[in-house]
Structures are given as C-alpha cells and as structure tokens.
Amino acid sequence: MIKEKKDFQKLTEKSEQSGLILELFSMLKHNKKWWLTPIVLVLLLFGLLIILGGSTYAPFIYTLF
C-alpha cells in the first residue's frame, strides 16, 4: 500500500506540467482528431493576438503599425 501511495506522489514530484501546445497536440493525437490541427493552429495565433491586444503594451504595438 505504502509503496504504491508513493507512486503518484513521486510522479507528480518528478513531472512538469506540459505546455499548452504540446498538450493540445497530444490530445489531437490521442483522440485521432488530426483534422482539427489547422483550426487549432490558427486559433492559437489568434490567441496570441488577443493576449497582446489586452496587455499593457497593446497601445505601443498598435502605434507600430
């Protein structure tokens, strides 16, 4: 019992949380939904734009173009 209890604890201690991109693609791979890839990619780019658009730096960036 005690040995196994350590298993999950150990797993969380030695593991890092995967980043968003890796997670998304592992999901698509796991669920065999490759056909979602292009739309996920484009949405991620959009995400970047939206995050920048909502940041303190947004007005600077938009004076740049």
Partner: peptide, 27 residues
C-alpha cells in the same frame, strides 16, 4: 473565444498565478 484564449486554455498558469503562495508541482 476571448475568454478561452486568454484564460481557460492556460489553466495551470492561471491557477498558479492566483494561488496564495508559490506552487511548483504540476496541477
């Protein structure tokens, strides 16, 4: 979408940011 792209897709970061102290292990 905006809420997903800004916040809900980044939950580990979002959770760790809002916790009262540092948390280094995965969620």
């Amino acid at each position: 979408m905006p809420q997903w792209l800004k916040q809900k897709l980044h939950l580990p970061r979002e959770i760790k940011k809002n916790l009262p102290d540092r948390w280094n292990k995965p969620i």
